[in-house]
Design a protein around this nucleic acid. Structure first.
Length: 113
DNA sequence: TTGCTGACCGACG
DNA sequence: CCGTCGGCCAGCA
């Protein structure tokens, strides 16, 4: 009955929504924040299920550890993910986030673990 | 019920 | 340098 706890996915979506505009994070960072450092794949899986969420999930802010838009192909548009990031001020080049290290948003640090 | 897959990550040779 | 493999958890046939 309450939000969080419905499943691993809801937690992922929740963290994803906490990502500030103009920032990006990695699957592993979210997975680790949830308590499963090796469950990065689940984060990606949750992103796939994010389409089932009634509320929009900024999945475009979630990229792999190198800042590459690995999931861009899964978006409705082929370059929708890149456009969304650029729309927020995040530069993307060759399916890769520019200055990813500077724009990297770590939930464990920003949220205060 | 078991087994495979999946938008990843890290290690090994 | 590059390719390959195992591990993590959850959903589906």
């Amino acid at each position: 009955m309450n939000s969080k706890k419905d499943g691993f996915f809801k937690d992922v979506w929740d963290v994803a929504r906490l990502i500030p505009k103009g920032r990006v994070t990695s699957y592993g960072a979210i997975a680790k924040y949830l308590g499963s450092p090796g469950a990065a794949r689940m984060v990606g899986w949750a992103m796939n299920a994010c389409s089932a969420s009634q509320e929009p999930v900024p999945a475009q802010r979630v990229v792999n550890r190198i800042g590459m838009l690995s999931g861009k192909s899964h978006f409705q548009g082929h370059n929708l993910m890149q456009e969304l990031l650029e729309s927020e001020g995040v530069k993307v080049e060759n399916n890769q986030v520019v200055e990813f290290e500077k724009l990297f948003w770590d939930p464990m640090v920003e949220l205060g673990l």
